[in-house]
Amino acid sequence: MKRILTVFLLVHCSIAFAQNKPNTGALKIIVHTVFGKEQLQLQNREYANAHGDSLYIDEFRFYLSNLKFSTTGVSFWEPDSYHLVDAADKDSRTIYIKNIPAGNYTTLDLMLGVDSMANVSGANEGDLDPVKAMYWAWNTGYIMAKLQGHSKVCKTLHHAFEFHIGGYLPPYNAVRNVRLPLQQVTIAAGKENILEINADAAAWFNDPEMIDLSKTNEVNMPGKDAMMIADNYADMLSVETGGQDKQK
């Protein structure tokens, strides 16, 4: 009996050891949704875009995917890396990544949007489940980013503007590759490290193309307009802090 118990304990320990990859750490990415320099408040806070139109934001959601951390000679790809970030859902704004090899990372590469593979592979799960309402039925594909709101300059029903940006087929592939330089994010074994990223909804309205909401207020299919807005928001992400391990 004792022997059986010993064997069981040994097996158990070795399994536990295998699961706890020794030279890896975890990273918590906190995404702050902002408008300019302010924390974004949905619905009841008035903002002004670069064109000078006053507006309210009602919905702000986007995919971050294919996250890759790099430092000289070393890269770590997050497996199954698809994250839907929703300004209205606090949980969605925190991304946990486990088993990152310990090291000092200097670059984070990611996609704003969803790669073409996920766009052609039918009904996906998790954040890619079509139940998340980030999916076009009649013209298959993910809505890669959504910004909705209202502004009195919009001569539309309820003064609404609606930007549903997507499309995975050339020449209208709306995925934008983003590279964020990190101030040396140190992943240390057994620690949870924190990286804070800002996502700025104001970036949608200018640079390179100034958006006049009285003229451009509805984009909801792949095409030139979607490409223009995706070019605008391609620089909406920036690193807030990094480098110091904030242990929780």
Binding site: N119, G122, A123, P130, Y135, A137, N139, T140
Partner: peptide, 11 residues
């Protein structure tokens, strides 16, 4: 417009 049988019912 639909590229995969699984997502056809969404229409």
């Amino acid at each position: 417009g639909v590229n995969n049988l699984e997502v056809q019912p969404l229409n």
